[in-house]
Simulated scan of single mutants.
Amino acid sequence: MELQSGDAIEVVSNKVEQPHRSGVVERVLQQDPLRVEVRWEDGHTSVFMPSGGNVRVREHAAGSEADAGGTGTER
């Protein structure tokens, strides 16, 4: 999975009672393994390393390949 700055993401929880989290990728720190800085919907920022297919791209950054008719909204 590749993420770009500006991508809106949703992290799906593996626990039943834990809600999903949404945020916007502020910076891509590393691609392999993926490390990104995310501004979460509650306003705080953290470094996030997705694992196990728990991240969905809700909306790609304007001007990205997927935004121009690429692979769709999920990666």
Score class of each variant (00 low, 15 high):
residue 1 M to Q: 14
residue 35 R to A: 03
residue 21 R to N: 12
residue 48 F to C: 02
residue 24 V to P: 10
residue 71 T to N: 11
residue 29 L to P: 08
residue 62 A to Q: 11
residue 33 P to N: 02
residue 11 V to K: 12
residue 19 P to H: 00
residue 63 G to S: 09
residue 11 V to F: 04
residue 23 G to I: 00
residue 74 E to M: 10
residue 41 E to H: 07
residue 43 G to C: 03
residue 72 G to T: 09
residue 55 V to T: 12
residue 19 P to Q: 05
residue 5 S to N: 15
residue 70 G to V: 07
residue 62 A to V: 15
residue 13 S to I: 02
residue 65 E to T: 13
residue 31 Q to H: 11
residue 15 K to Q: 14
residue 33 P to F: 01
residue 10 E to F: 00
residue 49 M to A: 14
residue 50 P to K: 01
residue 3 L to C: 09
residue 7 D to M: 11
residue 25 V to P: 04
residue 56 R to Q: 15
residue 63 G to R: 04
residue 40 W to K: 03
residue 2 E to H: 11
residue 36 V to K: 06
residue 9 I to Q: 04
residue 75 R to Q: 09
residue 17 E to K: 12
residue 63 G to H: 06
residue 17 E to I: 09
residue 28 V to W: 05
residue 11 V to Q: 14
residue 3 L to T: 08
residue 9 I to C: 06
residue 56 R to H: 14
residue 38 V to F: 02
residue 26 E to V: 15
residue 40 W to L: 01
residue 6 G to C: 10
residue 67 D to A: 15
residue 14 N to F: 12
residue 28 V to F: 02
residue 20 H to V: 01
residue 48 F to P: 03
residue 11 V to M: 14
residue 49 M to F: 01
residue 64 S to D: 03
residue 28 V to L: 06
residue 37 E to Y: 00
residue 11 V to R: 14
residue 43 G to H: 00
residue 57 V to L: 05
residue 63 G to C: 07
residue 72 G to R: 09
residue 42 D to Y: 03
residue 52 G to R: 12
residue 23 G to A: 07
residue 57 V to C: 13
residue 19 P to F: 00
residue 32 D to K: 13
